[in-house]
Amino acid sequence: MEGFDISFLHLRFLDLIDIICVAIIIYYIYNLLRGTIALNILLGLLIIYLVFVLVSQLQMRLLSEILGGFVSVGVLALIIVFQQEIRRFLLLIGKNASLQQTKLWKNYFIGKKELEKANFIFIRPVIEACKSMQNSKTGALIVFAKYFDEQYFQNSGENLNSAISKRLLESIFQKYSPLHDGAVVISEGRIKSASSILPLTDNEKLPPQFGLRHRAGIGISEMSDAVAVIISEETGEISYAKQGRVKMNISLADLERLLNKDI
């Protein structure tokens, strides 16, 4: 049996690279939209476009005019409808590039051991506070942001800009503390704000036991490069949110490892 001849496709090496790049972009977009309402919206827009193509071919003038007006502003509509997803996509690209560059510069100028020691200084009090709040089943939401974005954090909370300490974190999340509602935001090795109100995720596939605290932690990880540590008030379990994904019931050792890797 002779081999199948695909020479008529005229594929070049650059064409294969082009196909692979498009596949990677589609994969990342699907990951960003998976489990969200935005995926349903995208499918709805795709269906409308296919219907428009069909009625145009069938020369159904009235429907063609109505759907044609909608399709003509399709790019602008996509930007408006998917502005959060576009922001997340650009953040994902920029974060991966800047993260690698930052690590290289830090390792070059500071050294790996010194960098781990610097992280240990402000991560350790957080771990100790989480241990205490886990034992007492004190609900908490701690966000670690590489860049302090006032749009999401400071405008909706109380500005602190204080050093990180175990007792301060515990006192903030005490049930009768005026700052216990909302999130503590840590950036650049300091507690920047407390009682910050965060955007909630619209993921429809989250476990039913997830309340506003979990949804806020996942939401901010979807819309920015921040990671979130959530302690359940009902069970004391620790969850870790990053890029819209959540790891449930992690140990303190795993939490320390994840924080050292991601911040």
Rank of each mutant, 00 (worst) to 15 (best):
2 E>L: 12
2 E>G: 12
14 L>T: 11
14 L>A: 12
14 L>S: 11
15 D>C: 00
16 L>A: 10
19 I>D: 06
21 C>T: 06
25 I>Q: 07
25 I>H: 00
25 I>G: 02
27 Y>T: 13
37 I>Y: 03
41 I>E: 03
42 L>D: 06
43 L>G: 09
43 L>A: 00
44 G>W: 07
44 G>A: 05
46 L>Q: 00
48 I>G: 09
48 I>K: 10
50 L>T: 08
55 V>N: 04
56 S>C: 13
57 Q>E: 15
59 Q>P: 12
62 L>Y: 11
64 S>H: 08
64 S>M: 02
69 G>S: 13
71 V>D: 14
73 V>T: 14
76 L>N: 05
81 V>C: 05
84 Q>N: 15
89 F>K: 11
98 S>W: 09
99 L>I: 02
100 Q>G: 11
100 Q>W: 07
100 Q>T: 13
101 Q>S: 06
104 L>G: 15
111 G>W: 03
111 G>H: 02
115 L>M: 01
117 K>Y: 12
122 F>I: 04
124 R>T: 05
134 Q>A: 05
134 Q>V: 06
135 N>W: 13
137 K>G: 02
138 T>W: 09
140 A>Y: 04
141 L>P: 04
144 F>W: 06
144 F>H: 11
146 K>Y: 04
146 K>C: 06
148 F>L: 15
153 F>I: 08
154 Q>I: 13
155 N>V: 08
156 S>Q: 04
158 E>H: 07
161 N>T: 04
162 S>L: 12
166 K>Q: 14
167 R>D: 09
170 E>N: 15
172 I>R: 00
172 I>S: 10
173 F>W: 10
175 K>P: 00
176 Y>W: 02
188 E>R: 12
191 I>M: 11
192 K>M: 06
193 S>H: 08
194 A>G: 15
200 L>W: 08
201 T>A: 05
202 D>M: 00
203 N>W: 07
207 P>W: 11
208 P>Y: 11
209 Q>H: 10
214 H>N: 10
215 R>D: 00
215 R>C: 08
218 I>P: 09
219 G>D: 04
229 V>S: 04
231 I>V: 03
232 S>F: 00
236 G>I: 12
237 E>A: 09
240 Y>S: 05
241 A>R: 04
242 K>T: 14
242 K>A: 15
247 K>F: 11
249 N>M: 13
262 D>T: 11
